[in-house]
Design a protein around this nucleic acid. Structure first.
Lengths: 247, 247
DNA sequence: CGCTGGCTTGATTCTATTCAATTTTCGTGG
DNA sequence: CCACGAAAATTGAATAGAATCAAGCCAGCG
């Protein structure tokens, strides 16, 4: 349950840390996202990284605790959230393969992070990471690319929760999940939703009831089909895009 | 009106670009924000920077255009926004002295930026900045600090617009403005609001009418006093903090 | 087979939006 | 310095949509 239980060190090489994201300056590449790090950089980061595993529901880290490590997700999904004074959770985002977890604010974690599924990560101690970064401008540049990407994600999140209708927010959420899935190179005939409805509500800023109603409405309108709680298919792409105001 | 009209090159030294923000790793400093760049770094950046001035209402840059320069605000205030398909503007944030403007996404600006007041900036061509960054790990590290700060701001924004009551959103907005003012070292007996009510609504995701009603309610409740459209005083700090759920 | 947690559904309430009519403010030119 | 016109802000009435509360349902699991 706690960090030291969940973490196991592996000596096998998995290729090293990965950062997936769009490059900052290049334009018009075929694929939207790339591996931002070179083989060499990944190898160097491997030297300071250990592999940490977490079970579904485990906390990777808690907001306010000393930020002694950042995590690079290898497999699985985590959610980043803040616990409000009133006890409710605001979910900032879901993080997948190639994402970076554990940004700090004055030495303390800014958000709490919990495993949505079983998760494997690279654990990078900040002290070692910092010294690595300070002497490697190229590596840092790639980290900057990743941060810009996260910043855009945060703005996108703000955009989603600023829509008024629940169904629209859910469509935008589904669209985001679908796109991230495509970016990871996974098939997109079906949208995979590892998180539960409550977590979707936490992200889209909707009550559980509203999330449920939105799914029902979208299903009744023939926009989507829910195969089961974790798998959704877009049935009417035109209506879907229309709702998301993407077309 | 366009960029080349508004921009004027100055040979006088103003100290060079500044990045204000909290450091990433150090803890428990007296002041929350610092100048992140060393004198030396600022001097080096000055070599590739020109000074650009803009009048109130001028566009510094537009979303989707090729991102050929980033701007570092010296004086004045700008707002960063995205124009939605339906024509409405979502304001991502207001940027002040020491902030960085013009983050790009695959070589294009991610947001549009407009001057809220008269503004002076350092203009940093991305080509020169990129090569500068690639060979200066220390400088880059400081840029990373700034980006983390912006990321947290974006999350804070999402938090603000996720509140249900308009009055609470406005209080959170005022609190944010007050804190940024304090961070810049300005007096905080009064909160200065350079932007108009519509822009506040664009940021807090409220209609103009709701912003107006929220100000009226807060005034009637004795929480704040509005000296004029651009100056607000917190009259009842306890109630203010209570509304913001900060206490 | 029954339990538990996640989800669905309905009725009511609450709050922002919208639309529209005024009023205030501010910049400009006389 | 004042007057005017335009832009910004205020205010009201009606509407729409989500939250809340509460009850029931379903699936997975011992």
């Amino acid at each position: 349950m706690n960090r030291s239980d969940a973490k196991t060190r592996l000596t096998t090489a998995l290729g090293g840390p990965k950062l997936l994201g769009p490059p900052l300056f290049s334009v018009g590449n075929p694929a939207r996202v790339h591996q931002l790090l070179t083989e060499d950089e990944r190898a160097r980061l491997s030297l300071i990284a250990s592999v940490a595993r977490f079970n579904k529901g485990d906390m990777l880290l808690r907001a306010g605790e000393p930020a002694d490590a950042v995590y690079n997700v290898i497999t699985g999904v985590v959610k980043s959230f803040a616990v409000e004074p009133d006890g409710s959770k605001t979910i900032n985002g879901f993080l997948f393969t190639g994402d970076l977890v554990g940004l700090s604010d004055e030495g303390k974690y800014a958000n709490s992070v919990e495993a949505v599924t079983a998760v494997t990560t690279y654990r990078l101690p900040v002290s070692k990471l910092e010294s690595q970064l300070r002497k490697d401008a190229e590596l840092e540049f790639h980290v900057i690319c990743k941060l810009c990407e996260e910043l855009r994600q945060a703005q996108r999140h703000a955009f989603i929760i600023s829509r008024r209708e629940a169904a629209v927010r859910v469509v935008l959420f589904l669209h985001l999940m679908e796109q991230m899935q495509a970016d990871r190179g996974e098939p997109t005939n079906e949208i995979y939703l590892p998180m539960d409805r409550t977590a979707i509500g936490g992200f889209a800023d909707l009550s559980l009831a509203s999330v449920s109603r939105a799914f029902r409405k979208l299903t009744l309108d023939g926009v989507i089909a829910v195969r089961n709680r974790h798998h959704v298919v877009v049935r009417d792409r035109k209506a879907f895009d229309q709702l998301a105001a993407l077309a």
